[in-house]
Amino acid sequence: MIPFEYLRAGDPAEAVAAVAGRPGAAFLGGGTNLVDHMKLGVAGPDLLVDVSRLPLDRVEETAGGLRIGAAVRNSDLAAHPLVRERYPVLARALLSGASGQLRNVATTAGNLLQRTRCPYFQDVTTPCNKRVPGSGCSAAGGYTRYHAILGASEHCVATHPSDMAVAMVALDAVVAVLGPGGARTLPLAELYRLPGDAPQRDTVLEHGDLIIAVELPHLPFARRSAYRKVRDRASFSFALVSVAAALDLDGGLVRDVRLALGGVAHKPWRATRAEAELRGGPATEDAFRRAAEAELAAARPLPGNAFKVAMTRNAVVATLRALAEEGR
């Protein structure tokens, strides 16, 4: 770990100014990802601006939706009565992530901004385009079991580890950002980037941009929603694949649907093709399977993760099937 300065910001504007004015500065939330990376030598900020105690720790009701402060802890968000009532997919995604201890300190914005995961990214003795742009990708020809099957590039095949973000992407979440140039909002799905030829950038945020809140829009049928996470261990392990889904049925037909996938790409993957395939169609297992296969037609599995294609398809079908049965 290299030396760094520490500043506890008094308000969001001060935090933004402090980071924007220093190229090596970084925001510190719960620290469950950044501090690990500092220990490993993956990250070396020279100034940490602590935003975890800013007054951004409220969950507020909006017109049928919720506004979640950036500093709301994962445990608190999962336990919030309105989250559990209106967006069970989010509560379940949160509870399937990390461990109880980690959820108690991890923040909403920090969860969104976790770096993508790859063993070579974390091992500073190996080449990695994300850590050292242009140095090469060690995962190419290497160990790729946890890696992407969708949207990867020759420069990076890492996957985004958040469970919460998968649920939020499915729920059409919007992110409120305060930057050096002022405040703005953008859909969460547009926050994340695919690696392309600049895998060092996980998101479209500029240096100094601070996430203030996440807004969940009114989505009544999300009351029937579910998150399924397939992993090696029953607790505290990352998703091999995961599925966030909400289903709106009209008799035997799909009136509307939200579907997002985790563990398959550099970002939480909104399954828009599958959604289009499903809308207006029959709520049957065959239709669910065809929709999953339509989404996965673009999959380009690596030598170590071909299993993820079938696993994702099966997880999608099982999730939608269960939601459809609940609705009958």
Binding site: K229, R231, A318
Partner: peptide, 22 residues
């Protein structure tokens, strides 16, 4: 709330990957 089995007793645990099917 929906009379589903305790997920801790099932494969996948609280990842709620199944309610018994398969």
């Amino acid at each position: 709330t929906r009379e589903e089995p305790d997920p801790r007793r099932l494969p996948g645990g609280v990842g709620r990957t199944t309610r018994g099917e398969g």
